[in-house]
């Protein structure tokens, strides 16, 4: 255990150096959701009736999910680059903790995404995002975002392990970035036609967005929170198992 912690720490420091030395990975991660947020708040938002709720407050949960979905593309890219060169093999032939390498990537992914999320929330506050959420509700928001980031990080790990090229390693994130658009993130699902509405109501993003929105607005959270947590845990478990199988196949 001591070895696991110290090896993971050393490898995590290495990957954080990568991020600090190419800050574009964080800026790019934050830039796209910020651009989408500005577009929706100042262009499309006026046409959407969100009642007394400011549109930026209404839409921020979806923007936060898009931030993570674009951030994990770099998680997959960093992992793919280590796997395709000789770096992974060098670490595997050393007497280090067997799981330290993967956890260093997971940890780096979470830290990088949290930094991007803070940038996005900071700008949202500047352009009018307001919440009366209590400390307890903020803790719930942070918990759900961390769980969501962890779940998507394992999706990225699978992509990084299975990919044959850098493009392949990052392409999986595009549909994930797109998913919030067909959800309750930007317009109420009730305005959508039948089959689209059905998809929007039952896909994971809607339950997560509704939960975060209710937490921010101080309104009752309802059963959405359990659906949201269920989706996150299910994605996390399934992709962690697939990742394990992929690693095992490499060393068979």
């Amino acid at each position: 255990m001591k070895r696991f912690l110290s090896d993971t720490g050393v490898l995590f420091t290495r990957l954080m150096r990568h991020i600090v030395r190419s800050p574009d990975t964080i800026i790019t991660t934050a830039a796209m959701p910020i651009a989408i947020m500005l577009l929706f708040v100042y262009v499309f938002g006026g046409a959407t009736n969100t009642g007394s709720v400011p549109y930026v407050t209404y839409t921020l949960p979806g923007i936060l999910l898009i931030t993570v979905a674009s951030g994990i593309a770099y998680t997959a890219m960093r992992l793919f680059e280590d796997m395709s060169g000789g770096i992974f093999e060098r670490f595997q032939t050393m007497p280090i903790s067997r799981t330290a390498f993967m956890w260093s990537h997971v940890l780096t992914s979470i830290v990088a995404n949290v930094v991007s999320l803070i940038l996005v929330i900071g700008l949202a506050l500047v352009i009018g995002f307001r919440t009366g959420a209590s400390a307890g509700r903020w803790l719930a928001v942070i918990g759900i975002m961390l769980l969501f980031t962890l779940a998507l990080t394992w999706v990225a790990v699978v992509a990084g392990l299975a990919a044959k090229s850098v493009d392949g390693a990052t392409a999986f994130s595009y549909p994930l970035i797109f998913l919030p658009f067909i959800s309750s993130a930007f317009v109420p699902t009730a305005t959508m036609p039948g089959p689209v509405r059905w998809f929007a109501q039952y896909q994971p993003v809607t339950s997560i967005v509704n939960t975060l929105r209710n937490l921010f607005l101080g309104t009752p959270v309802s059963g959405d929170i359990w659906t949201a947590l269920g989706w996150c845990v299910a994605i996390l478990v399934v992709f962690a198992i697939i990742a394990r199988l992929l690693i095992h196949r490499r060393t068979a």
């Binding site: 290495r14 150096r17 990568h18 030395r21 190419s22 395709s84 060169g85 000789g86 770096i87 093999e89 060098r90 032939t93 050393m94 007497p95």
Partner: peptide
């Protein structure tokens, strides 16, 4: 395997040098 790893090192076919460091 872990005892073997304590006794060896590998310089693989593909560079194991971290280009950013």
């Amino acid at each position: 395997a872990q005892r073997v790893r304590e006794s060896i090192s590998l310089t693989g076919q593909f560079s194991a040098v971290d280009g950013i460091l």
